[in-house]
Design a protein around this nucleic acid. Structure first.
Lengths: 147, 147
DNA sequence: TATTGTTATACTCTATAACTATA
DNA sequence: TATAGTTATAGAGTATAACAATA
């Protein structure tokens, strides 16, 4: 009955792709893009941040962050505020509309999880999560060995 | 014990991201890119194809396929062959190195699935897959309603 | 000297629109 | 008239390298 291991992997990827497609829908409505939302999301988690720390969190070059922040300033989601103690640095800070967008992102993320997994029996969901945990751990070990 | 629904969703996405990172590693070694590998993968599934059909399979514009095929011709992975009956059309065809790359992609995909899920007990894996199936189905229904 | 951010430059993926050759 | 592919143009995300201001 378990078709085969490759099929299971494919289904994990398929689900992930569907979630991404759903996000894209949200983006099309809001005028944002995946990369900019990613930055906003990190900003929501960390609060006002320097571009250096954003670059590290997004695993992207500082130059790239400059471009993303330019766009988010342009669209009114963030502002560049002076750093209180380091005059070289900048604190990228969400505006009121920016905060609202972050809240909406969180809400739709939560709602999506509810829709997807809300009907799965608790015990089965716990096992599902356990399998995910083990798989992620296995993977982390694997990638560590390779490097 | 099951932390919460959002956490489960996050873990699915995390696993998918790890798999993508692994693919990127493969790409860095081979000199290919995600988009080009995607095209090669489809080519491996369908055999020699017109650019129109590739555009449909990749859900991308025909113009985009032109660029990807240009690059794959340049790198020696495919050739443009005349269509036997339609002189407007072209058959994008993998070369020997192209076929080899496709085989390697398949092999590493299979190997990855084995590493990730090979140690999961069969019954638990079957339930894991069942949960994935239900979730994917739920999602498909949801997106249909939204559109 | 080291760090923060920007300017300069370039490549990849993607899209729309107009065009050519063929059906 | 419709289809297959290309040229022209544009925008987004990404990268490296050189540079300015500040630490």
């Amino acid at each position: 009955m378990p078709s085969n291991l490759t099929t299971v992997l494919d289904k994990v990827l398929e689900l992930s792709n569907l979630v991404s497609a759903d996000l894209d829908q949200f983006l099309a409505d809001s005028g944002l893009t995946t990369a900019r939302v990613h930055l906003l999301w990190v900003l929501g988690l960390s609060g006002p941040s320097t571009q250096q720390s954003l670059a590290a969190a997004l695993d992207v070059t500082p130059r790239n962050v400059t471009g993303l922040v330019d766009a988010l300033v342009e669209s009114g989601h963030v502002t560049r505020e002076p750093h209180p103690t380091d005059r070289r640095a900048i604190l990228v800070t969400p505006t009121k509309p920016g905060k609202k967008a972050i809240d909406q992102l969180r809400a739709s993320h939560t709602e999506l999880a509810q829709v997807l997994f809300g009907d799965v029996p608790a015990r089965r969901l716990a096992m599902f999560e356990k399998t995910l945990d083990e798989t992620i751990t296995t993977f982390a070990r694997l990638m560590k060995e390779e490097s």
